[in-house]
């Protein structure tokens, strides 16, 4: 498994997948829809799929002495690794905004969503949707990724729109908590979102394995 992940990272990946991890730091931007950072990270991963297709990566991988399901696992592992790195940057940004910058005027007067555990959870949901809609969709054919990416874009922006709108609704202001306010609720929401990410990823991985096994290359 280490070999197939190494192959993903060194041969299949586009350098943009690594560079775009930095967009996780958009969680530090005030006055900006921070969940777009999660979308930009997925845009970087998309570049790897594009580069891999141009390099005949899927056929190459299937010809290696590995099971077909391991080819799928390699892609999922690579994507999850990039997402985990981005989430780490986002988590650091959230911690900074919850502690050092918790009283900062520039963040307090921000009309848009605050970077807190709930926001981090929403980023997890976006990544989960990417894994389910884009990677899952890609492995239906192992070469078409246009439609899967477009459906992911719609889903990602819908989640961003809803997440940005929710805290303006009556009674839902707690979602935009600053510092350690409503910390228990914030962490419950984060845990639920991580569970959603894991569920989306695992279900789509299992389906992708089945689909890919059936594909003629």
């Amino acid at each position: 498994m280490r070999n197939i992940l190494r192959k993903e990272m060194r041969l299949s990946a586009s350098v943009l997948s690594y560079l775009f991890i930095v967009f996780g730091l958009m969680f530090l931007l005030p006055g900006y829809p921070i969940l777009c950072g999660a979308f930009f990270v997925t845009l970087g991963i998309f570049q790897s799929f594009q580069a891999a297709r141009e390099a005949n990566d899927i056929l190459f991988s299937v010809l290696l002495p590995v099971a077909k399901k391991d080819v799928v696992k390699g892609k999922y592992l690579f994507v999850c690794l990039i997402e985990a790195c981005a989430l780490l940057l986002m988590a650091i940004s959230v911690i900074l905004r919850m502690t050092v910058f918790s009283e900062s005027d520039v963040y307090r007067s921000n009309a848009l969503m605050n970077a807190n555990p709930f926001a981090l959870g929403m980023a997890c949901v976006i990544f989960g949707l990417f894994n389910a809609l884009f990677i899952g969709g890609f492995f239906k054919t192992a070469y078409k990724f246009g439609r899967p990416f477009v459906s992911f874009i719609f889903a990602a922006f819908l989640v961003t729109f809803i997440a940005e709108a929710l805290h303006h609704m009556p009674g839902l202001g707690v979602l935009n908590a600053f510092g350690t306010d409503h910390i228990a609720l914030q962490f419950v929401l984060l845990a639920a979102s991580i569970a959603a990410f894991v569920l989306f990823t695992l279900l789509s991985y299992r389906k992708a394995r089945e689909n890919f096994e059936r594909i003629d290359l």
Binding site: N3, R6, N56, F60
Partner: peptide, 21 residues
């Protein structure tokens, strides 16, 4: 004449492949 990873150095491609065998 299909080429795998056309823009990667042959040495790097081989370094990955050899680990599978």
């Amino acid at each position: 004449t299909v080429s795998w990873y056309p823009r990667k150095k042959i040495r790097d491609i081989v370094d990955i492949i050899k680990r599978f065998y």
